[in-house]
Structure formats: structure tokens, C-alpha cells
Computed example of a mutant assay.
Amino acid sequence: MLFGDTLPDLDTQTGYRGPIACKAAGITYRQLDYWARTGLVEPSIRGASGSGSQRLYSFRDILVLKVVKRLLDTGVTLQQIRSAITFLHERGVDDLAQITLMSDGASVYECTSADEVIDLVQGGQGVFGIAVGRVWREVEGSLAELPTDRADDGAEPGLDELSRRRAARRAAGA
């Protein structure tokens, strides 16, 4: 999947907690936390809202995390990745999972057609591509056996089980 193919629709209320997102994307929790706090890749289902709250990442969020990790692994700096994503957002690209990114190790390119890929390669630079569809299938396989959480599970939003128990104890003691 490079150009024109669309990705399947997903349940927007089902997500994955931080440790699961890390495992599926192949990153550390420290990276995940830093990228969320600095706005590089924020969880789209539920963000952190204080101590004890759990971020909830969508499948697409994890897909973007894995693409960022792949770019880092090939030598693109986090600053370059951040600049590319900021530029794409400024151009109105809201769903990063819908685009194809390429890089020569020094810059990141958005590819919108097969002609653009040919021009980059004929320019004499070595270019690698990240086929988002393939990464999609890898993330899908990684997440297949892992637990999910629902944003609308009836519990207080953003609190994990321990925080809910503490809140219940405080309410009972009051």
C-alpha cells in the first residue's frame, strides 16, 4: 500500500494502554511518555490527566509511533521527524497513517504519487520508504493477543483500577 489505498475504519473507543503501545511499536515507555508530553504523538482516545491516569492509544496512534520509531532507526533525527509532522499538520494532514513517508536519512518526504518517488530516486540520492500498510499489518499482529481498554467503560475517565479504589475509599470515609 503506497498510494491511493485507504486504511480500514477502526473502533474509536477501543484503545491500548501505554505499556501495550510500547510493546507493539517497539519503543520504551520513556520514549512514549516524552513523545506524548511534547506533542509528537499524543494518544487520541484518552490523554493523561494527572497521577494515576492512563493514556489510551488508538491503533492509528500506535501505527504512527511505529513509523516514528522506523524513521529514528534509519538515522532521521527526532527534530527532523518533529518538523516533518508539524509541517504535515500545518498543511491539514490530520491522519498521519494515511500518507507515505520517505527519507534519504537527511530529510523526510511526503510521497503523494508514484512520479514523486521516481523523481526522488532519479535525483541520485539513496531513498528508503516506509510502507504504512505493511507497518499496519505488523502492528495488527502485535496487538492481536494483547488486552484492550474501552474509553466508555463506565469508570471515571483516565483513572486506573488502583486510583478508582482509592477514590472509593475516600468517598466511603467522608
Rank of each mutant, 00 (worst) to 15 (best):
K69Q: 15
K69D: 13
R70N: 12
R70A: 13
R70I: 12
L71R: 03
L72Q: 13
L72H: 07
L72W: 01
L72K: 07
L72C: 04
L72S: 07
L72F: 01
D73L: 05
D73S: 02
D73V: 04
T74V: 14
T74P: 01
G75A: 02
G75W: 01
G75M: 03
G75E: 05
G75Q: 04
V76F: 00
V76S: 02
V76W: 01
V76M: 01
T77R: 00
T77L: 00
L78G: 04
L78D: 11
L78W: 01
L78R: 11
Q79A: 15
Q79H: 12
Q80L: 06
Q80S: 15
I81W: 00
R82Y: 05
R82C: 02
S83F: 05
A84S: 12
A84Y: 06
A84G: 06
I85F: 01
I85C: 02
I85D: 01
I85M: 03
T86W: 09
T86K: 13
T86Q: 14
T86A: 14
F87M: 11
F87A: 15
L88Q: 14
L88K: 09
L88T: 06
L88R: 13
L88F: 12
H89F: 07
H89G: 09
H89Y: 10
E90A: 13
E90G: 05
R91P: 04
R91K: 15
R91I: 06
G92N: 04
V93M: 03
D94A: 14
D95A: 12
D95W: 03
D95M: 07
D95G: 03
L96N: 08
L96S: 07
A97Q: 12
A97Y: 05
Q98G: 11
Q98C: 10
I99L: 03
I99K: 04
I99N: 08
I99G: 02
L101S: 09
L101K: 10
L101A: 12
M102S: 14
M102C: 13
M102F: 12
S103A: 11
S103L: 04
S103C: 07
S103R: 07
S103F: 01
D104N: 09
D104T: 01
D104V: 00
G105W: 06
G105P: 01
G105A: 05
G105K: 11
G105T: 09
